[in-house]
Design a protein around this nucleic acid. Structure first.
Length: 448
DNA sequence: TCTGGGGTCCTAGGACCC
DNA sequence: TCTGGGGTCCTAGGACCC
């Protein structure tokens, strides 16, 4: 039984989050910035129309911002994460199978819903012997709708319940669902929803899709393909497979098959176990001293410990790195891996390791712009093999971490390790952050 | 002056073994 | 004098994603 993939993608997600709580931003040019207010990471359609690119440094568009009176926001991750989970909860009511692909995107399986090739598993017999959809929302709304109608219903409901505008692309492979989504978003005729499952003129459609807009084709591959004479997604779908294999590896081959309507990627129900956890930041101002660097790395190690414990994991290896700016002449980058005798998620141990790592890769007279920790060899906390000669009282450490996490979840003044320092001259800046409307009592929307 | 953060997968090449 | 071939494992780096 083939799947029907619907890719639901929030339009200009960060900007839309800001707009939900600040309707004055509707129809205006709005952009959202990365950490340290460094780069543009989200733009409203109006800002896109002014040619403000994704990822450009803010200083390069300062004039445009002034000239067009563009609204500028720092990233408000607390707000975005909460809005994301509201959208995902709404979507989950419309499908028995959902894969949350990123903060603003999800794949739904619509096979068996919406009156198109009913999926036997999606139905059950009720007491009176009637066939019923096993999912409440689907039961309510499937009936005789087409996929496109069903998509429109999803779109309207998400907008009504969360305020978030979304676009929906529907197809029989993930890559084609992405293509459909791209077209739904960029063409006014589709009204935000496009179904390619029964499309007779798929070739015509693919011919309008530029190579670099295809899922899995980045800038490098797009250049290589253009040099070889390819122009559109249609060309790629007709490429010679062995040539693709040689030039782009198996991932390239999968992309071609997916464009030909042969699925190579499944819906990931249970997200595969994490392979790594990274915490790193650019500094607001460069750091030269080892003391400040150690403070910074301690903060990141501490945050990494929180992430580990959130997922009930422990790390076997920590990699620590420091780097100067990528844009200066004498770049310096160094990293070091440290193996723990016993995998750990104890912040005290993580900070100790990170701090000693920094000492070994530090170099004097460098303007460090960034450092970070990467945790690898992640294992479930309850499957940790204790080293034979390890005498640490892990139970005690575990209880301590639990208490710290509990307090920090509730308190606005978190418990910190002394190593993390107090003054934080290097801290990350968010000068134009909006309130945390949905997650902090003191920052609710005021109705006046 | 000012240039994000957090992930995944694949591949090539070296070390090592029989 | 003649110097194989195939397998595994590991790692660094590349490419891509959002």
């Amino acid at each position: 039984m083939n799947k029907i993939f619907a890719l639901v993608d929030c339009n200009n997600f960060y900007v839309s989050c800001e707009r939900v709580f600040n309707p004055k931003l509707e129809n205006r040019s709005v952009i959202v910035l990365s950490n340290n207010d460094g780069c543009v990471v989200a733009r409203s359609n109006e800002a896109k129309a002014l040619n403000i690119g994704m990822g450009v440094p803010v200083f390069e568009v300062a004039n445009l911002i002034r000239k067009h009176n563009i609204e500028v926001f720092s990233s408000n991750y607390t707000l975005y994460a909460d809005m994301s989970s509201r959208v995902m909860e709404t979507l989950a009511a419309y499908t028995p199978e959902i894969e949350i692909y990123s903060i603003d995107e999800a794949f739904l399986n619509l096979a068996g819903i919406a009156g198109w090739q009913p999926h036997p598993d999606s139905f059950y017999q009720d007491e009176d012997g009637n066939r019923r959809a096993s999912h409440p929302q689907a039961a309510l709304e499937a009936a005789t709708q087409t996929l496109e109608e069903y998509g429109c219903r999803i779109r309207q409901t998400v907008k009504k319940w969360t305020g978030m505008p979304v676009s929906i692309g529907i197809a029989q492979t993930k890559t084609l669902a992405k293509v459909a989504n791209y077209l739904a978003k960029h063409s006014s005729i589709h009204n935000g929803v496009l179904d390619l499952t029964n499309s007779e003129n798929i070739e015509q459609v693919l011919d309008t899709v530029p190579l670099e807009k295809i899922w899995g084709i980045g800038i490098r591959s797009a250049i290589k393909l253009k040099q070889a004479g390819f122009k559109s997604a249609l060309d790629l779908s007709k490429a010679n497979i062995s040539w693709i294999r040689a030039k782009f590896g198996v991932t390239g081959v999968r992309t071609v098959y997916e464009l030909q309507n042969s699925p190579c990627y499944e819906l990931e129900h249970n997200p595969p176990a994490r392979q790594s956890i990274v915490v790193s930041r650019m500094f607001g101002t460069p750091i030269e001293s080892i003391e400040q660097l150690k403070e910074a790395i301690s903060v990141y190690a501490s945050r990494a410990g929180e992430k580990l414990r959130e997922h009930n994991l422990a790390a076997g290896i920590m990699s620590v790195f420091v780097t100067t700016s990528r844009f200066i002449k004498n770049k310096y980058f160094n990293s070091l891996s440290i193996a723990f005798d016993t995998p750990t998620n104890d912040t005290t141990e993580l900070i100790r390791a990170a701090s000693s790592g920094i000492e070994r890769i530090y170099r004097e007279k460098c303007q460090f712009k960034k450092c970070g920790v990467i945790l690898l060899c992640l294992v479930p906390e309850n499957k940790v093999q204790q080293n034979l000669f390890d005498r640490t009282d892990r139970e005690k450490a575990r209880r301590l971490m639990k208490v710290v996490d509990m307090i920090n979840a509730r308190s606005s003044v978190p418990i910190r390790w002394a190593a993390e320092g107090m003054d934080r001259k290097w801290h990350v800046e968010f000068k134009r952050r909006s309130p945390r409307y949905t997650t902090n009592w003191d920052e609710l929307v005021k109705v006046t």
